[in-house]
């Protein structure tokens, strides 16, 4: 019984490669990742929900941003307003995927990396904070923040 369940679980994983469990390969050019992760197409509306949710995107733990209803915003990182004007799509993507590639000392978490981490809590082990589709959604949303 248990083996059958485990097998079904494994099959489900295999059938859904873009799920949170996997990390998409990418190429860095300069300080950017020019190509979308896993060829996914981002959706600004979903991206807004991800960035605005402190449990999912975590962004507002550290950043202020254009979320009038969210009173508990952070002041550790810069305001997200204008990020789409300051950075290109590819630059935003690299900063979300792994900010340490730009600033090795940064406090900003690597949202799409599972290697090189230590003592990750059980529930989160082997999974990136955001999957490829979520990264693309967030990048697409950030590009709309031009002022």
């Amino acid at each position: 019984m248990r083996r059958a369940a485990a097998l079904a679980g494994a099959l489900l994983l295999a059938a859904a490669p873009a799920r949170a469990e996997s990390v998409a390969p990418y190429a860095i050019v300069g300080d950017a990742i020019p190509m979308p992760l896993a060829g996914a197409k981002g959706d600004a509306k979903r991206g807004q929900a991800i960035v605005g949710d402190r449990q999912v995107g975590l962004c507002l733990l550290c950043h202020p941003g254009p979320f009038a209803n969210e009173r508990a915003q952070g002041t550790i990182g810069p305001d997200l307003r204008g990020a789409g004007a300051r950075w290109s799509e590819g630059q935003l993507r690299l900063r979300l995927v792994d900010s340490q590639k730009v600033n090795p000392e940064t406090i900003m978490p690597p949202f799409h990396r599972t290697q090189g981490l230590s003592r990750v809590a059980g529930a989160f082990r082997g999974r990136p904070i955001l999957d490829a589709q979520q990264i693309e959604d967030a990048v697409t949303y950030l590009q709309t923040l031009t002022d």
């Binding site: 975590l58 981490l117 230590s118 809590a121 989160f124 999974r127």
Partner: peptide, 8 residues
């Protein structure tokens, strides 16, 4: 030392 999924 950096630790955890947030690597902090």
């Amino acid at each position: 030392r950096r630790q955890g999924q947030l690597d902090l």
